[in-house]
């Protein structure tokens, strides 16, 4: 069963109404990830970003503890609705200039809509983890952690080392020039929204 695997999470979605949610390993792990990213934002002195992750951590902890019962009766969002919403969101996110106050509005709307959509999904009954899927999960965890540690190391070391961030670029430094072009911003927005549709579609299923 799923509970036998370390990344499985024994929280059945259907039992939300009658059973107080129980934090499984996966929930703790992802809560840790959210807090860790928030700490990195503090180190970057990006107070707004840190506040986002702090608020998310508090919201998730409060929900996991069963202190709030929001959206239990909400209906999952259909794939067609998701695709239409993403197609509409592409327009302002591609046309508006990066780092401007105006592009923050559609970004906030997309974020709140995505969280509302997956929040309605509640909890699902865990499914078994076949061995190849477990191997894939462990591989991805190892690679993502290695990549994130390298990113953090470059951000911190690049701030003090000779040559600075030019000699020790983080992924942001490498991608930023490409995103300053129309093609780059368009490609990023389309890819980013496609991943969002994928996550919300999978995450909002009951």
């Amino acid at each position: 069963m799923a509970a036998e695997h370390p990344i499985a999470d024994p929280e059945p979605r259907g039992a939300e109404a009658s059973v107080r949610p129980r934090m499984g390993f996966a929930s703790w792990a992802w809560l840790f990830v959210v807090v860790a990213i928030g700490v990195v934002q503090l180190l970057r002195r990006q107070w707004g970003d840190a506040a986002v992750f702090g608020a998310a951590a508090v919201l998730l902890a409060v929900d996991a503890a069963g202190l709030v019962r929001l959206g239990a009766r909400a209906r999952p969002v259909g794939t067609r609705t998701l695709l239409i919403a993403a197609a509409v969101a592409v327009v302002p996110l591609v046309l508006l200039p990066r780092h401007g106050a105006s592009i923050a509005v559609p970004m906030v709307v997309v974020g709140l809509a995505a969280i509302a959509a997956v929040w309605a999904g509640g909890r699902r009954i865990p499914r078994p983890w076949p061995r190849p899927l477990r191997t894939l999960a462990v591989s991805w965890v190892v690679v993502w952690i290695a990549g994130c540690l390298w990113e953090v190391a470059e951000v911190l070391y690049g701030g003090v080392a000779p040559g600075g961030r030019a000699a020790h670029p983080a992924l942001s430094d490498l991608l930023d020039p490409a995103l300053d072009t129309v093609v780059g911003q368009t490609a990023f927005v389309v890819l980013w929204l496609a991943v969002g549709v994928f996550l919300v579609r999978r995450g909002s299923r009951r």
């Binding site: 799923a2 499985a8 999470d9 929280e11 979605r13 949610p21 934090m23 499984g24 996966a26 929930s27 992802w30 809560l31 990830v33 959210v34 998310a56 919201l59 998730l60 929900d63 996991a64 995505a114 969280i115 997956v118 929040w119 999904g121 509640g122 909890r123 699902r124 009954i125 865990p126 499914r127 969002g196 996550l199 919300v200 995450g203 909002s204």
Partner: peptide
């Protein structure tokens, strides 16, 4: 599979 993991990933 859970709201915590889903919202965190999103």
């Amino acid at each position: 599979v859970s709201r915590t993991t889903t919202v965190a990933v999103v």
